[in-house]
Design a protein around this nucleic acid. Structure first.
Lengths: 146, 146
DNA sequence: TTAATTTAAGACAAAACAGTCTGATATAAA
DNA sequence: TTTATATCAGACTGTTTTGTCTTAAATTAA
């Protein structure tokens, strides 16, 4: 079970982190990404295509083709990817599921969750993909299944 | 979309919070809970039965029957309910989905997420259902659908 | 030009999650 | 005892998420 991001979003974050570690101009194939990150290949293909349409990746067909970041890795934050794949519901929804939860009708943990949510938000906007790639100690990523 | 808890868990938390507001000895029917919290009736029934089997609620059949907390509301924490319904995967899983994420093989946001997770954990264990009920300003709960 | 390789696209399938329905069982009160 | 009302239990359905498969289109290199 994923925590707060969908599987798709987790895979997207893992993929862009991996791409951030490659040399400028280098293209990575779905095959390599899927094998390294242990992500189902065709599922990953759809995710990468989606990120391409959203403008974060560029793709090339044919032999020597593959995917690469479309912009400097430091210009892509985790927030960008989460927004593109899962949307921002996490930033606006009540953690207990109350529809009317707000400043006026706060649920019983409204304030505590607000702090947690703000910290999470801060984490997403402050971390760019370049830092992400650099922070990964090992190149052999092991992706979580379940 | 739910944030971190499943729908079922959100409904469970809402229900025990509501039950915590009732007088000692009073029983609440599924009908009343479902109507007030706007939860699908038969779905709620299954959730309440599950909480009953787990020992948090007592139930009585027949007219004047219904559900009530099986113990003082202050003895039930949010943590108890989340554990009973969703389990504790949130406390152990990598937020980016990496299987091997740990102190030795930390993912790029391992430490930041660790703080968030600990704060969340603290919120769940420190808040009991009695406080929850008392903190709800309005009795007319409005449950989130979507 | 042809063959091999890669992404693009969308239909399809499986699994997980959410919600519904029906009949059985228990209980209270008339 | 009968009737009405409530939970109990589990099968069933629908929806969303996750994952698979196939064909087309593009590109490189022989």
């Amino acid at each position: 079970m994923s925590i707060i991001f969908s599987r798709e979003c987790e895979y997207a974050l893992q993929s862009v982190t991996y791409l951030a570690r490659t040399k400028q101009g280098e293209k990575i194939s779905i095959r390599e990404l899927a094998r390294t990150l242990k992500i189902p290949r065709h599922f990953l293909a759809k995710i990468l295509q989606r990120l391409t349409r959203k403008g974060f990746l560029i793709s090339a067909k044919g032999p020597t083709g593959g995917f690469a970041l479309s912009m400097p890795a430091k210009d892509i934050t985790l927030f960008h990817i989460v927004d593109a794949i899962d949307g921002l519901a996490f930033a606006n929804s009540c953690v207990l599921g109350f529809r009317e939860c707000s400043g006026k009708h706060p649920c019983a943990v409204h304030d505590q969750w607000g702090e947690i949510r703000d910290t999470l938000y801060e984490m997403l906007v402050s971390r760019n993909v370049s830092q992400m790639g650099a922070a990964m100690k090992k190149p052999e990523y092991e992706a979580a299944g379940n």
